[in-house]
Amino acid sequence: METRPARRALVTIVAALLTSLFLLFILGPVVGLVASGGSRGFATFTSDHELRSSLLLTAATATIATLLGILGGTPLAYLLARRAFPGRSVIAALTDLPLVIPHPVAGIALLLVLGRGSTVGGALYQAGLRVAGSTTGIACAMLFVSAPLYVSAAREAFARVDVRLESVARTLGDDAWRAFARVTLPLSARGLTAAAVVMWARAVSEFGAVVILTYNPKVASVLSYDRFTSYGLDEALPVAAVLVVFALIPLVMLRALRVERRFG
């Protein structure tokens, strides 16, 4: 009779221990990084012009990529959530593909299509739009690797809005666009915002695809890598620490959205 509570206590202790180790594993390096380089990073933030520029570039390109993702991904997410059509599961799987291929491989694939030597890249170059080795390239790489996160989360957000609410709106006189704007969009707005924040955060932290497509100008992740390979750990630490804090901003926003949703 007494073995059961004892066994339960043992299981609890083991689970608590494993959870603590897991959290330590996740948080340890991040806390260590911020503790080691954070103060120096922020102290040199005003004087380190390259760091400031790379952070601005990272934020700007991630924002452009996110906006493009919203523009192209929202209709796709809606279609995947609402319409049954032949090949829907294939399209859904293809949309998720960038999530599972190594990001340097994604960069190589993009380079093949958008590099100056390719048909598309060559034509764009002729038209005055250089992709590889430019800000456009950075935005393209970020879009490629992070848009699937947006599409997937936006699809969930649309799926959570009962389709019968749209049906009621349609019978009350709204055409499909108006029903979307008056009912579906307001009801999925929080989910779509969260999806965009996740996409932006993922774009900010992207390295593998960006470094293949555009080494210069340097986004923050490339700068941190560059300083590490050129000057060693000591010089890379402040950049890396600032980048971690930078990436925390959207995560805090996301939590705030969720808390508001729960208690709002």
């Binding site: 009962d162 019968r164 609410l165 049906s167 009621v168 709106a169 349609r170 019978t171 009350l172 006189g173 709204d174 055409d175 499909a176 009912v183 307001p186 009801l187």
Partner: peptide, 30 residues
């Protein structure tokens, strides 16, 4: 003919009121 042009209305068993609108805004919807 699309639903909005059929001059009808539907009431479901579970009401399906628009949760982001007030009661008045719901009744005023169409």
């Amino acid at each position: 003919t699309p639903p909005e042009a059929r001059r009808l209305a539907i009431v479901y068993q579970h009401a399906y009121l628009f949760p982001h609108l007030s009661v008045r805004a719901n009744v005023e919807y169409g």
